[in-house]
Amino acid sequence: MTSFRLDGRPVPFVPGQTLGAALVAAGRTSWRTTRNEGRPRGIFCGIGVCFDCLLTVDGVPDQRACQVLATEDLEVGTQEGERRAP
């Protein structure tokens, strides 16, 4: 089965799914924490408007999981608080 990695662990996906869809299908509902209160966040609007579902894709932070198509061996990272050390 095709998969990408979230923080190094494989997440299976069906080609054509977004990262967000694949994560939800895998039972994962959150992959980011908020800046001020550290609250967990995942998909909310699902159509690219709310920016709740941000994660890091191949080292590029702040990508919307609901918009980026999953591809084989993509390295995806969760984002904590203020996203990352620059």
Partner: peptide, 8 residues
């Protein structure tokens, strides 16, 4: 105005 970032 940019997105929020750590203190840069």
């Amino acid at each position: 105005v940019t997105q929020p970032v750590p203190a840069l």
